[in-house]
């Protein structure tokens, strides 16, 4: 309850890039297991956006728990997760004949949660099952 519907985009950030070849590190997780939201969305969700709270992001492809953070410059209704395994947990693999999945412009529902963010090892374990 108290969820919002957004258009989700994934993309590069400097911290994501700097840790691109250091993906098993905490730095990489801190840089990419995070959802950036506009102030308006945070308000609706009743969150501060200081990075200590968590949200569940749900799309037609799946769901993932990540940290919630206030993002700069986002229009209302747009949320951002840096490219990486957490973002891709909710990206649809249907390329519609183009070879390219939908990494941007994904319809998503976001709600606050107390659940833990899965570690990279947890995430990979899920795929092996």
């Amino acid at each position: 309850m108290g969820g919002v519907r957004v258009i989700l985009i994934s993309g590069r950030t400097l911290e994501q890039g700097t840790n691109l070849e250091n993906k098993l590190s905490d730095e990489y997780m801190n840089a990419t297991a995070v959802c950036e939201l506009s102030e308006r969305e945070l308000e609706k969700l009743g969150l501060k956006g200081d990075g200590t709270e968590r949200v569940r992001v749900r799309t037609s492809a799946g769901e993932i728990v990540v940290a919630a953070k206030k993002g700069e410059g986002y229009p209302e209704g747009v949320a951002f997760i840096p490219m990486g395994p957490w973002a891709n947990a909710v990206v649809n693999g249907n390329t519609k004949g183009s070879g390219m999945p939908f990494f941007k412009g994904i319809e998503a529902e976001i709600e606050p949660t107390d659940d833990e963010i899965p570690s990279i090892y947890d995430l990979m374990r899920r795929y092996k099952e």
Partner: peptide, 27 residues
Amino acid sequence: PASHFPADAVRHLARIPVIQIDPYPNP
């Protein structure tokens, strides 16, 4: 690809034999 492919693709990759060549460990 474990990080940069969508979940559906990674799920199949995790099931088949995979050879990885890389300087760094990654997902």
